[in-house]
Design a protein around this nucleic acid. Structure first.
Lengths: 206, 206, 206, 206
DNA sequence: AATGAATGAGTATTCATTCAT
DNA sequence: AATGAATGAATACTCATTCAT
């Protein structure tokens, strides 16, 4: 049944959450409540299991980002929604997502061909919104594709790093700063002035 | 001699570059051209070797960032210099620096106490510049400490991820986008307009 | 199966017989005709294997001593039976029993808590017979508990030492002397005189 | 100098006392305050060091036993003196003496040829006294040679075992029981009766 | 004579994977 | 489909011994 396959993946996620990359197939089997041999009926190898998890995780993430933009019209709103959703998904699934990007590099080097489409899919979500923003004129000075990757990386690692290394920082505070950085950069002050100026409907004489 | 210790670390860096976290002490010894036992004369264990490398790498990185700001007066110039230096150091030492942040999380969880001071040191370099910028009024809307960590993470992972996952992207193009994002955020266009406006010496009526 | 566990213990006994404490787990596995990993299915570690052997050996020994006294009524007969049985069991299982007492002392120092009950059990067999003898008046001048330990040690080591260091001495001759020493001490002559005197039914005026 | 050789042996004794058979040549060198290589100037190998210690220890023991009988005339007094001296020497040097007899059997099996003369020497001390006693008529019913070995073993292991396994028993109480056993055997009561009878100067009618 | 850095054979233990049932 | 006993290659670490200085 597909049920068993899913329950093994769920068990693996829990085990990885607890043991990191030190997890063993025994742990997975025990957590899933099946025999070791059974795991091998559904996954050809440990690496296959890991790859399956990564791919499912990335798919889920992509879907989550796509769901987040539903109902948003303007590019800015979409990007904000994506960033927030992405950040929260990483926070809630930190251990797994850390694996996704920072798992043993050898795995990625060898597995890239299989994983790449999924990564591209997520990059695409970011890139599409950025392109829309550029076309709409509200984003500028950026290369949508490259900045998409950077944002993806930024959000992902800000969430992961902070949740691991800085448990003292509140997730909300970090997220807020991420938004500020993304939307206004470091030079927020003059820009805010400019924004206020625009909001007040006053013209800007040249 | 300290020479041998250094050569073992260098050998380890090469081996890690090639094999990731799957490296063995035998590989290190062979690469260093010494016997296995010799490695253990200089490092108490594999973990000790790894920690030593991480700490030396972080120290070197901190020094590199501090060197980069020498001669820069204003906070903006300093930050640009730090970002560029950091990015390039990561690019040139990617495999090692990936270990620094994405090595087996268990190592970090257990070893954090020893590594934390070094991480704090680097975070401090970023935070100091951001604080200066906020005081000088050229940076705004940010929490220097948190944004320092975010920037550190951003630069670090943008460099690492791109060099690993997207060898097709030029390092320079990515760096440029990183700078743009950091200094102007995503909404570069209006800001650029504002900048141009300022540069042209024209006043901005309210 | 319990069969395999037993066969591993049997193999270990043979290997220890041949190699002493220098035995390796590889040797045990090879002797048992199983893979190295299989040994670890039944014993958690080398020390666990050793402890298991010791405890099983002591249990077997205790049972052997208890079996030996069945059918004996008087304390003297019981003690003689115990001594003989003990002596022969040690002779036939010398290598293992040497481990029991003369194995790496560190093992005993650390493991004592687990082994102690088994040693106490054997000491108890001796002590019980001695107590009975004292009550019956046929033994005297002794502390049953301490002398029990001494006899245990005496028989054990006389058997072990002689079988190792003096293969030239016949086991029977040594056993005979052990009996003589235990029952009559060194001053056998006068006592024998006394005994003869009693046997001849002649009274001993006071 | 012979001084250094002695100091290395002394250091080894301390290290063995502390670490048992787990001791390493490094420990010995460090304890002796010399370089590892220096140890190998005086002893060809670890086994050689161990053998030298054993042989010196046995020589010292033999000398101690011989010293103990000085001034004793009758065989009974001599034996009592030997037993007491032997017992005390083992107690005070337990760890080393345990090595002497219960060290890794492989060592003894291989080294027996070299050690045997020293063991024979000690056995001889016991045997000589027993022979004297038999000739003088105060000891009887025994084979001096075999019983010599048994007594040697008895005293040695009673002391060693009790000091290791039964720290709760006082050394004096154990020694007393050893004496009782040796001189009167287990049937102390009738013998005592006989003794009393003799002491009272009363004749024993046949 | 003395040193101690270097060696490398040796060993306990782990764990992904297989396969007979 | 499911099991779990068995496998054995792989690996970190130790330590007696050597030898250039």
């Amino acid at each position: 049944m597909e049920d068993k396959r899913s329950s093994i993946i769920a068990a693996a996620a829990e085990v990885i959450d607890k043991w990191g990359s030190q997890f063993t197939m025994d742990m997975v089997a025990q957590q899933a409540g099946v025999a070791k041999g059974t795991v091998y009926l559904y996954f050809a190898s440990k690496q296959d299991l890991l790859l399956s998890m990564i791919m499912e995780g990335l798919q889920e993430l992509e879907q989550g980002l796509k769901d987040a933009v539903v109902g948003c019209k303007d590019a800015g709103g979409k990007l904000a929604a994506i960033v927030t959703a992405h950040y929260q998904m990483v926070i809630s699934k930190a251990p797994l997502f850390i694996k996704l990007v920072s798992q043993d590099p050898m795995l990625f080097r060898e597995a890239r061909p299989e994983i790449l489409p999924y990564l591209k899919g997520i990059e695409g979500v970011y890139a599409d919104v950025l392109k829309q923003g550029v076309q709409e004129g509200c984003f500028g000075g950026i290369n949508p594709e490259i900045t998409g990757i950077i944002l993806l990386t930024l959000v992902h690692n800000a969430a992961a790093s902070c949740s691991i290394f800085r448990p003292d920082l509140s997730a909300e505070a970090v997220l807020e700063q991420v938004h500020t950085l993304i939307f206004q950069g470091i030079n927020a002050a003059p820009q805010l002035a400019f924004k206020n100026l625009l909001q007040e409907g006053k013209t800007c004489k040249v």
